[in-house]
Design a protein around this nucleic acid. Structure first.
Lengths: 135, 135
DNA sequence: CTTTTTGATAAGAATGGTTCTAAATTATTA
DNA sequence: TAATAATTTAGAACCATTCTTATCAAAAAG
């Protein structure tokens, strides 16, 4: 099998259709945290419904994560190929990836507090440029 | 001034109208993480539009935080009177408050990674009952 | 090879949570 | 008071997302 993306899909029990391969590659090679609409504009041959359907499947399989809480009201998506968290510049809405933090103590604290088995975590921090004028 | 909630509003440059007092007290005394619609049902004398408007103001003033990412698609709200994070039981959608974690190292890591001044953080963890059958 | 079955995709309609609008009410100031 | 400003309201509008139904493609069975 020469196409590693095809493998990724099959390992996650997803049929490797051309739309899914295109979308997965798009997500893997873009760190722009796009909305469904933005993806659809870049890949007009894939219908908006399929973009939504496929992203939902990818989220289920944990290939992609949702970023919400952005003040544009839309849902953003991000490839989940390496563990990281997001820092959102509230002045520009820019979403920045960061990975220099080990969430293990947080996970442990949450399991201790709730008794639940933590399967996923979402860490979003909000900040502004330190030198930006208060509007 | 005998009403502490009135003080809270005035300290945040919000006129202490009866709707705002009622809503603030509601949020302070309920840890049920309600949606706007749920609040409106409990407080039918306050219009849904005012519930939304007022919650938005409270969020701006950091008296209330938004919890999204719940699989019911709706926005939930929570009083922000003490720092804590949320653990969501993905089987029941129950939102559990937890506070046994100090986010200081996370904040530090984020500032180091991005150069931004972190003003807010949102930590949501997702988990299931350890003894629940996988559907 | 067909045929059948299953699952994926597409186009557009429908949904519904949230936001907006314009009018009515209430508070504030002169 | 009158005049101005801010808040609240009911309902309309919005629009991101989901749903519906039909079409299509791929795999499985025969």
């Amino acid at each position: 099998m020469l196409n590693p993306l095809k493998n990724v899909l099959q390992e996650h029990q997803l049929k490797a259709t051309s739309q899914r391969l295109t979308l997965l590659e798009y997500m893997m090679t873009h760190d722009t945290h796009p909305t469904a609409e933005m993806i659809h504009q870049d890949l007009p041959n894939i219908s908006l419904a399929t973009v939504y359907n496929t992203l939902e499947k990818f989220v289920e399989k944990k290939l992609v994560v949702i970023i919400d809480g952005i003040s544009d009201g839309k849902r953003h998506y991000d490839a989940a190929d390496h563990p990281h968290y997001h820092v959102i510049n509230t002045r520009t809405n820019e979403i920045i990836d960061a990975a220099n933090y080990d969430p293990a103590p947080l996970i442990k604290a949450a399991q201790a507090a709730t008794g639940l088995k933590i399967t996923e975590y979402k860490i979003d921090l909000y900040g502004v440029d330190p030198d930006s004028k208060p509007e």
